[in-house]
Design a binder for these strands. Structure first.
Lengths: 146, 146
DNA sequence: CTAAATCGTAATAAACGAAGTTACATGAAG
DNA sequence: CTTCATGTAACTTCGTTTATTACGATTTAG
């Protein structure tokens, strides 16, 4: 099953943007996200709609973070992306009248709901600022080694 | 995103098999799983490899549950199906050398691992016997209403 | 005002995986 | 031996996601 890696991708982009604190074009972001400019605009456009970044057109245009790094969490990003489905496994739900199916669905749905709640809770606890700090820690360690 | 509903499907099939305690052919199971016989053999074959069901060829052949309903859990079924990916969201993991990516992955991986552990734990607590009992409860309630 | 750079977005193509289908081989029952 | 059912390989179909193309809209520089 193919995974949706947009959350991972926009995090990558946002941290890069946080580092250099300047406008970055879709083209530049496309390179660091291993994709192409149109896909970047499509994805970053969702973040813009959520007020997390701003975009500017024309020469010297590009993308910039518009929110407080301390306040933006992974959950905010997940929501900005349209809350894509979390699970790759799910119910069949093709015969809702079947009592067997109802019993099966009841058992599975409860477990999935709990796991989803846990995941979203974890997401809500990670801010961009924490990730940025983590990156800087790694960066310092990396420089110290070399 | 398209979901893998095989776990749901085989549960449906197994509960039907548990009800009638007789051999069921791939054709019969295909009908109650809303699919076709070849897909049933493919999927049930995985359960057979795990020792959960047996198959018999020839006239009067078919599929039968081979394990104790009290002992088989959803987790066993999940494993028998090859432990398919649980999450539809994941890391990009295309530039493992990038320190930004490492920071992002570390944050996401921890959250996913915990949610997965919770889900599998819940799966391990649901036996086929419990599901069957739940079905019978619903069945009784349904008959009482009509 | 014009030219160049950049985003915005629709339309289309390509890629991929899952499921469905066909075909035929294998084995068991009577 | 004939029939019925599974076993499995090969192929096709389908749906979704991502990539690409194309062009419009907007902004800056000179």
């Amino acid at each position: 099953m193919k995974r949706d890696s947009r959350l991972s991708s926009v995090l990558h982009a946002l941290l890069h943007m946080a580092e250099q604190k300047e406008l970055m074009t879709s083209e530049q972001l496309a390179i660091c996200m291993c994709t192409n400019p149109v896909v970047v605009r499509r994805t970053m456009g969702l973040l813009r709609d959520a007020g997390l970044v701003t975009s500017a057109r024309g020469p010297s245009g590009g993308w910039m973070i518009a929110a407080d790094l301390e306040k933006v969490t992974l959950r905010d990003l997940h929501e900005a992306l349209g809350e894509p489905a979390i699970f790759a496994i799910g119910n069949r739900n093709e015969s809702p009248g079947c009592l067997v199916e109802q019993a099966v669905n009841a058992a599975l749905d409860g477990a999935f709901a709990d796991a989803e709640a846990l995941l979203l809770d974890r997401f809500a606890k990670v801010t961009l600022a924490k990730l940025s700090a983590d990156f800087n820690r790694r960066h310092a360690a990396h420089r110290a080694r070399s």
